[in-house]
Nucleic acid binder design. Structure first.
Lengths: 192, 192, 192, 192
DNA sequence: TATGAATGAGTATTCATTCAT
DNA sequence: AATGAATGAATACTCATTCAT
């Protein structure tokens, strides 16, 4: 049976299924056939929407990033949050993304995960959006780091790696962040 | 021509060539044939020493780790170094490994670099060895971090990622380390 | 946008675009999609007019042949031309077609050019029309060849092949024709 | 069952089977799988010997040409033959090659044959070897053509095309050759 | 120990063709 | 008349792995 769908919808459907499989099995071990089969769709259809596997991969990463991007935008505009509130919210966003997609980090020999690509992309986003926040924080004296942007990147990528190794307690993460940024204890609130 | 060698020697030879090629081209894009060709050896011989590509990969990683492991051991035993000296030397070890093997991090979607696999292993080693050092540092009041081991891990993996994105200036790395560990400026010395 | 056209016009439009692309890229490397895209038309429309790619190909060839057919007809009826004039005009027609459509002969292993298909058809046409001319020529003593029709075919197809190999000088072609047909030097005039 | 063969033998075996299938079905319609299947051999083996389909094709053509090349060499060295004898022998060689591989010329829309490639290659060979013969013939006054090399090419390629269209009578070919080269009737002997 | 020919399952990609709208 | 999303079979090519010698 032939089921036609709105192109945008179909495209999104493919991206989402690819994401799921990339998480589950890693990028290389997920074949274009796998994706088509799971969607009950002909292989050719995927190539109707994406020129190549590589293009599909970048769409998947971009799609993941965009969601995070939008969320951070909202946080930055939220006037109900002060400096520490915003910082905490942003960090939460990242760590919860990782928490909810543990398979993202499925790196095993012979099969690299999506994690490394997404992590880089995410920390780019973090810096872009958090730039203003950090400058404010520095001016207001909340932060005294010489390279606060870099420190933030390190924290995000470093804690993500910690997470991968099983250190998942947010209170530990909180302490590490506070120490590295020289922030008073308890100012940052991380969700479990 | 058929050249017989001491088995251990041969095995090591294969591991080393695999290491070189994994660095150069990434793990997936290095085929067993590539390795055999470079060694002027028949494909079958590699399978005589290693059950599978996967087994070879893990030997390569283990071999790389062991070298680092030994080096750290030497640093720890070096009585000519004080706390900061040892800490600096250990950090140097990691960052210079990365500096000298930039191809280690040759990660592209669909082709993982050695680094992806080694990173976890390396930070395990760091923690194992640096455990004593850090405990000493804490007792002696050099370090006040609540979770100094985790902080170290974050620094190693986070700075490695920074490095990948082009932030290669050691003086920046030094500042980040000093701030995160609450160490007085200039105590740690990183080689260029 | 949906543009309706007169069926015959549309059909001709498709044939012409196919011709252009077949010349440019060869027949196999021209996909039905390519043709549709260039015409700003949906793929399905081409299948509305032609049952299959094969059918389209034969229409294209037929269309090309018909043009040549008509031209030769005009030459034969042209009372202003004598025997040598007509013969020269016919030969010109073929060689200028090749000269003006060098891509016609775009043959590479695995991708045949239009010429491969057209050549036989063209020489059939040549013989059909030139039959009368040649008989006249023989009767009038202008030509003494035993099989002038075959000789003509050989010249057309052979010189076309010469052309493909880079021998493009019309004065060389002229000499070859004159020698093969036993015609006095300078009687045939070939355009550059 | 696994049957190992001498590499050169295997390579030749593949080339020959490819030749047969290319003749039968045309180049494009013959897949690498087809060739493997007919040989009762794994697909991969063909790629062990030939980098790509394209490489295999050129080996097939080269292999075919080499045989002809050698035969012509023998004729040229044959002191028992005079000018006309050698010329006849060479022409015989070509036309009998065509006669024995009629499927070579299996050109149908959507499927180009090997013929065009081989024809070009053959006429190159003809010119190379016949160069000396023709110069001799010209000096000795046997031939008066202005461009005897080109005329020879035209004859070979043109008569081959005639053959394709069903004109297979060698006596007709003989006359055409004699007329085009200005050779006395009956000097050239073509086998049936 | 060592060779390298042989295997075979797998992979991305293309494209003529169909069909519901 | 026209659209374009969907199909599915085919294709070239790769590579880890095996095995007879």
């Amino acid at each position: 049976m032939r089921i036609s769908k709105d192109p945008e919808e179909r495209k999104q459907e493919i991206i989402e299924m690819a994401m799921v499989l990339f998480e589950e099995k890693g990028i290389q071990k997920t074949s274009m056939s796998d994706i088509a089969k799971k969607l009950n769709v002909a292989k050719g259809l995927i190539y109707y929407y994406f020129r190549s596997k590589e293009e599909l991969i970048s769409y998947v990463i971009e799609s993941f990033s965009m969601v995070v991007d939008e969320e951070i935008g909202k946080i930055m505009k939220n006037e109900g949050l002060d400096f520490y509130g915003k910082l905490g919210a942003i960090l939460n966003l990242f760590f919860s993304a990782i928490r909810e997609h543990p398979s993202l980090m499925n790196i095993t020999p012979g099969n690299s995960g999506m994690f490394e690509y997404i992590k880089t992309r995410l920390s780019e986003i973090a810096i872009t959006h958090a730039g203003v926040l950090i400058e404010e924080g520095k001016k207001a004296g909340f932060i005294e780091n010489k390279y606060p942007g870099y420190m933030l990147k390190i924290l995000i990528s470093g804690i993500a790696d910690l997470y991968m190794e099983g250190v998942t307690d947010p209170s530990i993460h909180r302490v590490l962040i506070e120490e590295a940024l020289g922030i008073p204890e308890g100012k940052i609130v991380l969700k479990a």
